[in-house]
Simulated assay, not measured.
Amino acid sequence: MSKPLRVVIADDENLARMLIKEYLRPHTDLEIIAECETGTAAVNIIETERPDLLFLDIQMPELTGLEVLEVTGRLNGVIFTTAYDQYALKAFDLHAIDYLLKPISQKRFNEALEKAKKLLSMNALEDANNIRKIIARNTDKNQQLQIRDRGQIYTVPISSIDYIKAEDDYVLIHAAGQVRMKTQTLSDMEEQLNCTTFVRIHRSYLLNLKALKCIERQGKDSMVATLLNGEKLPVSRSGYERLKLCLV
């Protein structure tokens, strides 16, 4: 017999959590391991417990559901719950991700649950890509990043970022004289940020054009980007071509 799927319920409404628990009762292949009322608590539980399935309210205190996904890098096994009406939901573009509109019926709940189980068994790449797109739209809308670094959650305005550097399986975000670490690939970060403002100048560097002072040749075949703060970053040949397209 396979192990039950481990479930976390994140919703600031006690009645909503109680209803989800009641709807989950007949499903013996699921185990509720935790529930929480705030976005910050959801981040802590997700990172410590690594649940298989997450029922996540969009609007919660401290961090929204979308910000919880951004901070944790959670890209699958998510069912959104929300009290927003259909019109308001268009702002989140959730058509590709399953969500439960409150008040939730048992029939609709079971449909969403079966879909989530199927996607989990498939490890669906499409599901992860859809969540990436939703996070990117939310980032573009709010013009800020949510970063958990050394146990603290920081809000970093995108306008304050000078550049982002890849470092193993995480990135270092250089902003306003400070460096924040985020567990995310540089490619995912590039997709999340506005491509007209940030340019991949090197396999390890993503540059905010607003921080650029000039491009200089250094040696016969190498270029460097000099920033307004005096820092110099390497520029690859392909990165130089991308820069030229953006600076015309």
Rank of each mutant, 00 (worst) to 15 (best):
I161K: 05
I33D: 00
E22K: 14
A211L: 05
T183D: 07
N110S: 13
R242E: 13
I215A: 10
L75A: 01
Y87D: 14
T64I: 02
A175V: 04
L75C: 06
L89F: 03
T28I: 01
H202V: 14
L247M: 15
T139E: 07
H174V: 11
C214D: 11
V78I: 15
I33T: 11
V179Q: 14
D52R: 03
L209I: 13
R6L: 06
R237D: 09
K232N: 09
F55V: 04
A116T: 06
K220P: 03
R203W: 09
D221G: 12
D11R: 02
A42S: 13
D127T: 12
Y84H: 14
G219H: 07
I33Y: 02
I147Q: 04
T155F: 04
T64Y: 08
K182C: 08
Y205C: 08
C195R: 13
K102H: 08
L247F: 11
T82C: 10
R180K: 14
V199Y: 13
I97E: 04
T226A: 08
N110M: 05
K232P: 00
D11G: 06
S238N: 14
Q146D: 03
L24F: 05
I201E: 09
K165H: 12
P157Q: 11
A88S: 15
I45N: 01
L69P: 04
F55L: 06
N76F: 05
M189K: 00
E190V: 05
T81S: 08
L206Y: 00
K220V: 14
K90V: 13
R108A: 10
K21F: 00
E62V: 12
L212W: 11
A124R: 03
